[in-house]
Simulated scan of single mutants.
Amino acid sequence: MPSPDVDQISAALAAHGLIQRGGFVLSDGDVAPDGPSNKPARSVLLVGQAGAAPWSHFQRWREAQPANLQNPLDSWSREVIGAVAREFGARAVSPSDKPFLPFQQWAMRAEGLRPSPLGILMHPAYGLWHAYRGALLFEIDLPFGEVREQSHLCDLCVGKPCLKSCPVDAYSEAGFAYEQCLGHVRGPSGGACRTRGCLDRNACPYGVVFRYPEDVQAFHMKSYASL
């Protein structure tokens, strides 16, 4: 099989509102997951989204699924990315696969990003409004360009509103108070978070044109609250 064309992969993903989020060739010191034929993978290509571009594609797919389907967004992502993987001779993997793969480290390596105070990687264009939905693993070296570290917008943000908007101070320099956050979101005073999304995340001044619409944020918060 000839080497897959990254532009063709991007076009296949774009048909579902997804984008390729960079990639890299694994080095000899890396622990390589299996590729499509169970040989060690050589290249990792990240797949994700910017803003809510996949939402209409996902919603159309969701209408044809059982009403009680668990984790529908994960299921849709696996189906779509899996089909692209088969077309281009790759193995598709997901952030929710167990044992967990190092998606956060892969993403930083592929795009030169660093985490925000909320833990979400800060993107110079998308801000906090992006996600990684999966990855394609190839058993050949793909011709990725050099990855340069991006300017980290959080270093330029003096006020840090993302650490000052949560009513229960779930995020701080000490880390994320998960139980505190979840209890608030589930409780009687968490209505704004359930319907409009995380107040800290929404307070970030960067990438606002990519901010998820309220119905998308409500979908994710409902999933989070059901954990």
Rank of each mutant, 00 (worst) to 15 (best):
P167Y: 02
Y126R: 07
N202L: 13
A170H: 01
L26A: 08
L101H: 13
A192E: 13
R201S: 02
L156R: 02
L128T: 14
H220R: 13
R148H: 12
H57N: 05
R42W: 11
L121Q: 01
V80G: 07
F144S: 12
K98V: 15
A32L: 04
G112S: 00
L142G: 08
S56R: 13
A135I: 11
C157T: 00
A85P: 04
P124Y: 01
D97K: 04
A64W: 03
I9C: 08
G175D: 01
P95H: 08
K39F: 09
G159V: 12
P33S: 12
G35A: 09
C157E: 02
P117E: 01
A11I: 06
R60N: 10
Q59F: 09
R91D: 05
G145V: 03
I140Q: 15
E79Q: 15
S116Q: 05
S56G: 09
E111L: 04
D74P: 06
L128A: 13
V93E: 11
S226W: 12
A11V: 06
K164G: 01
A135E: 11
S189W: 07
A203F: 09
D74E: 14
G48S: 11
R91W: 08
G191T: 03
R148F: 03
G112A: 07
R186Y: 03
G48C: 04
H123Q: 10
Q8F: 03
L136I: 07
G187Y: 06
E139Q: 13
I120E: 01
A110C: 08
Q180N: 01
E214W: 14
S94L: 13
S223L: 14
H16I: 01
M221V: 11
L69I: 02
E179T: 03
E146V: 15
V25P: 09
H184K: 04
F103Y: 12
D155F: 03
G207M: 08
A83L: 04
L121K: 05
G82K: 07
R109W: 11
G82L: 04
K39A: 10
V84N: 13
L142T: 06
Y212I: 05
V168R: 00
T195R: 10
E214A: 15
I9N: 07
P143S: 10
C181L: 02
R91Q: 11
N68F: 00
S75R: 06
S96R: 13
H184N: 06
V168T: 06
L69S: 09
A174S: 04
S3M: 08
P188L: 05
E111I: 00
W106F: 04
L142Y: 03
S56E: 14
R114W: 09
R211D: 11
I140M: 14
K160N: 00
C193H: 06
R186S: 10
M108N: 02
M1T: 03
P4Y: 02
G159W: 01
F103W: 10
N71D: 14
K222C: 14
C198W: 00
M122T: 04
V31K: 13
C154Q: 01
K98S: 13
D97H: 11
Y132I: 11
E87R: 15
Q20S: 15
A41Q: 02
H152V: 08
M122G: 05
G89F: 00
V208R: 15
